[in-house]
Design a protein around this nucleic acid. Structure first.
Lengths: 172, 172
DNA sequence: ATCGCTGCAAAAGTTTTGCAGTCGC
DNA sequence: GCGACTGCAAAACTTTTGCAGCGAT
């Protein structure tokens, strides 16, 4: 599924369209074709953007990334492409509370995100903890969870310590 | 906190403004005042709507409910009221994947929702399962989860059986 | 009487859609 | 060449905001 991720990571420092990463371009193209989808430059670049980011991106961020190397691209196409990729299972959608949806390459390692409401830091969380919850729901309620990604909001350790420090020093 | 819920449920069949439920109106009013908020008819009705629904409502649904007994209400007020009630902790916000946010009365029993992607059924899930996840995160990662509500999407038991039935009978 | 709250209208922001033309296969 | 896909523009939709005036305390 995702040697795309690895190939993409290899080109993180590259900014040229596809000159330095013909292998990535090729891998993405093959993947799309194997799913019966046309490998248009727009689609390839959307996948490349998500691979390069190695994390979640919003539609407008993808738009900017792609537009840098394919200036005539249109935002509507980004959205339509993301719909297609979602349906194909290549991409995962999430709401990280930014007002707009975020998208991520579907990796083989399921993981989730912890979003700090104070400092905005986003850290990854392993799926292990959630896996037991999923199994429990399937056994107890017969509910088969398909949600692949969870975003939990709260206060990260750093911000908690910062807060405690303030409270301890100058309690007002 | 929420004899509001109980009082609200008592008036589920009532449609008159507040004539048949002076106790509910009074309870909500007192609650708002005790928090230093003005008990305007708009605010009281928003809370009454959420209590009557005994579940999650979107802003437009609240709007419709309130407008039925207070026609001059404005949608902007609904949003501003919900902001206020969120800040006061009387209300909880969730994304149930409907494109718009959903809101719910903050009850003393924390619970979550399982949303079936096939039939749209929404069932409640006890917080017990999630509680352990929360504790784990606090211990392991030092992350204090503040997300009070979780929406998990998937396939409910009924739809799974329905699907299996079809597959078993006429596998096409 | 004060000032928080509301109604109205307009704006901001994200996402969708119709249509004509283009380009991958 | 065919049909899927794209660009463009406009619309649909949720949510926010400025401002003048009303009304709860």
């Amino acid at each position: 599924l995702n040697h795309l991720n690895q190939a993409a990571r290899m080109t993180q420092h590259t900014s040229a369209p596809t000159s330095r990463a013909p292998d990535l371009h090729r891998a993405i193209t093959d993947r799309l074709r194997s799913l019966g989808l046309r490998a248009t430059p727009q689609r390839v670049l959307v996948l490349a953007a998500l691979g390069d980011a190695h994390g979640h991106l919003r539609a407008d961020e993808i738009m900017r990334w792609v537009a840098e190397r394919y200036p005539t691209v249109n935002l509507a196409t980004i959205y339509r492409t993301l719909d297609t990729l979602l349906a194909a299972g290549l991409v995962t959608q999430t709401d990280l509370g930014a007002g707009a949806a975020s998208f991520e390459l579907t990796g083989e390692t399921r993981h989730h995100h912890l979003v700090c409401e104070r400092c905005g830091a986003v850290t990854e969380m392993d799926d292990a903890l959630v896996a037991s919850l999923r199994e429990r729901l399937l056994c107890d309620a017969g509910f088969r969870v398909s949600t692949t990604h969870l975003a939990l909001f709260g206060i990260c350790r750093a911000c908690q310590e910062r807060e405690h420090g303030l409270l301890g020093a100058a309690q007002e």
